[in-house]
Nucleic acid binder design. Sequence first.
DNA 1: TTGTATGCGTTATCAT
DNA 2: ATGATAACGCATACAA
Lengths: 350, 350
Amino acid sequence: MPRKRSEGAVTLSDVAQLAGVSLATASRAINGSKDRSVAEELATRVREAAQMLGYEPDANAQAMARGATQTIGVAVNDLTDPYFAAIAGGMTDACLDRGMFLTLASTGNQLDRLPEVVRSLDSLRVRAILLTGGRWRTSGIGDDLSEAIRRYISRGGRLVTVGVRLPGIDRVLIDNEGGSARLAQALWECGYRRPIVLTGPEMHSTATVRAQAFLARARELGCRIPPENQIVSDYTRAGGQEAMRLALESGLKGDIVVATNDVMALGAMRQARQAGVAVGTELGFAGFGDIAGLEDAVPTLTTVRVLKEEMGRQSVALAVTGPGDGTGEINLPTTVVLRDSTPRRTGRPA
Amino acid sequence: MPRKRSEGAVTLSDVAQLAGVSLATASRAINGSKDRSVAEELATRVREAAQMLGYEPDANAQAMARGATQTIGVAVNDLTDPYFAAIAGGMTDACLDRGMFLTLASTGNQLDRLPEVVRSLDSLRVRAILLTGGRWRTSGIGDDLSEAIRRYISRGGRLVTVGVRLPGIDRVLIDNEGGSARLAQALWECGYRRPIVLTGPEMHSTATVRAQAFLARARELGCRIPPENQIVSDYTRAGGQEAMRLALESGLKGDIVVATNDVMALGAMRQARQAGVAVGTELGFAGFGDIAGLEDAVPTLTTVRVLKEEMGRQSVALAVTGPGDGTGEINLPTTVVLRDSTPRRTGRPA
DNA sequence: TTGTATGCGTTATCAT
DNA sequence: ATGATAACGCATACAA
């Protein structure tokens, strides 16, 4: 047999015994089975017994008996990223409302460990898996990941991607294209004519989509952005900083820096200031995401607002109540938020 | 019986059958029991069978049979708080290293739900519970919480508090007193003589400790801070903002604002700037925690650095390998980080 | 309405 | 070294 019962382990049998009822009755009294009901008197006796003994149901045993857990698993790359943290916040809220748990499985910032993470969550028999982050090239580890997902789903698991589209998988998406396009429009109307775009990594799907949509709309407006004004960089604060450094060193001309996320914009802004640029007045800055703390930057940063908490909440909702056949899709709007980093340009563009 | 086996459910029995061995052998081959060993040939056959069938062990069943899970539970108040997010990041790292999982149980920012959260985690039979946040008054819900903790521990569970001290419970602490005292010293040496202290809520233990230590050291230096220069407020950005507004409206005199955490300082700084104060030169600002993004504030914010990731990592380590008898204690140092928000005062204090 | 008995998937004990 | 089987704690189909 497995380990002998540790002293403190109170089981439902103990409760039943103390209450003088059968195990089944105790179970029904505590949980309240569907069609069965139990006499009020007995029920109270059972509850009192449970209370006295300090009974706490064993979720693992319940999971086995019921064939399902109350846990949702989320694959996380970097919990400290404020963009993701906000999404995760929405997820915890949604789980709290439903009396569910959220189990984190981290890739440790190594994307190639994603399949492994999915398998782990599968092993836990989580009710659903939430896959966040838009960092996957479509090939390479893709097959391994697809296989892990396929197996999980074949076991009856639910999976939804957040912010990224996977064939045959339910998803929560945001309007990256629209947001970028409207940002391009808004900046144009503010008088900006020569954007420098910090695109982020080429393999990063979200970054690429945002950058391309921005470039496309700018072109429509008659604003052609030469390749040297499109800088590839890491999707991080340091990446933005580095990109800005390069841009300044190479004497790049421009009136605004547009990054595909907020931390890159922040890093770039700081780098520019250190280089003596009059941030805002001389050179505008814009990000994407509207993470917390943007109002503490000086100047406050213009960005595209993403409903991150809502993404988290909706992904849980979709995972729990959605179709689960790959047709489920929730689209969240994005809105441009103009702040002090992009003052209206008065003079003619340089 | 519970639900009928869903089609996709591959069990160890299936694997054993395909490999032509007994269930016991399959188990040993896959997991590798302690003293038992299995012939290499059989082991490979089993592994191949598992691979073919896409077998994934059921963690719930393992938990039952083994009497222990591989999961650590963490009680979280607000995941989006950057201070906590950093701690949680350290926790996920530590769990990843150990092949463990992290399950979040949120209070939804309601402190009185903490006992309930502990019971939930207890129900999951997590290997350890990590209790974060220093927000508990010693009375009130305390009893309920203590009872929940007592029961959990009596079942063999481990529990460690992070950033707060509970009688008889292992803990990871930081040097709040020392940090505050050294901050007071450093600011004094920079020439600041009339601090305005944003203490945070009175019932918040951490905030109180930080504030008191600061006041004490200031007094030692001959700097008496009158009660009206000690402002109670929410422990949030909005709280700092509001406190600053009140201070300015009431015409409070001072040369520096010292908050018991960073977000309050940030909020206060922004409020002051909006009111036309020359932030930094005219009025200094300091926080506590050194959360991410402080370098993006303008001026960059002086603070007391806390090794937040390390707190997370150490708390997991303590929970897993510590004594578990309440004698375990890890103390982490804090260091003052002077930045642009507290320039050296040249003139005589006003 | 209540009780009895079985099964969930795995590990560990005991015998071989 | 391998196999048969009890036990983990609970929910439920079935009998009463």
